[in-house]
């Protein structure tokens, strides 16, 4: 069975590798500059993700949200671990958190808001913001912080962002909305959605954490 499995995967990989040889050298690219500026962007990837294929992105954000719903729902019946935080609490770390928190926030927002001009965008910015905040929160004791944060606000930010994104996507697809404002707005909404989402996932995992 095991040998057969490796043989099958190897054959499959070989077949795929062979199939790519027919694709090189790659044909020249169709012109893309005009379409990019037409969407109000300088970064063509942002023009595709947030402009031409905003519908896909919308579905992708839905996939992400559903995973979050699943994380919350499936962990609900399990007991939570109380006690020692994964990172040792120390005054130095706490001071570092105070200094770094605003910096990470500004960096995340900048990365998202400038996503249509250069590399960046809502998703990586949200991931960085969410996980950075959580790493720093670990220094302060995550349970305490999670209790302080108003849960309704978080979920309103998360699902409100989602709903606004759906409206934006629908408008772009049916009414032909386009322009830089659309991209910036979409990126910021994704940032809101993904950063709260990343926070929620990590916080839930940390509350039920295992041995590390």
């Amino acid at each position: 069975m095991r040998r057969g499995a490796w043989l099958a995967t190897l054959t499959l990989g070989g077949l795929i590798g062979w199939a790519t040889t027919g694709l090189f050298p790659r044909p020249p690219l169709p012109p893309w500059e005009a379409v990019t500026s037409q969407w109000g962007a300088r970064n063509a990837v942002a023009a595709v993700v947030l402009g031409a294929r905003l519908y896909d992105t919308l579905l992708e954000v839905l996939v992400f949200s559903m995973a979050l719903v699943g994380v919350r729902w499936a962990l609900r019946p399990l007991p939570q671990t109380e006690g020692r935080p994964p990172v040792a609490e120390s005054p130095l770390l706490e001071r570092a958190a105070d200094v770094l928190l605003p910096a990470i926030g500004v960096f995340g927002v900048y990365l998202a808001a400038s996503g249509h001009l250069g590399p960046g965008g809502g998703f990586p910015a949200g991931a960085i913001l969410g996980s950075g905040l959580l790493l720093l929160a670990l220094a302060r004791g995550i349970r305490a912080l999670a209790r302080e944060l108003p849960q309704p606000l978080l979920s309103r930010l998360e699902y409100g962002g989602l709903a606004a994104l759906i409206v934006l996507g629908g408008g772009s697809l049916t009414l032909g909305w386009r322009g830089a404002w659309l991209l910036v707005l979409a990126n910021l909404l994704i940032l809101a959605k993904v950063s709260t989402g990343a926070w929620v996932v990590l916080e839930h995992f940390a509350a039920h954490r295992g041995e590390v």
């Binding site: 990837v45 250069g118 590399p119 960046g120 965008g121 998703f123 990586p124 991931a127 996980s131």
Partner: peptide, 11 residues
């Protein structure tokens, strides 16, 4: 592909 690199690193 700097966008993808950023996403891969962050996510």
């Amino acid at each position: 592909a700097p966008d993808v690199a950023l996403a891969e690193a962050a996510i």
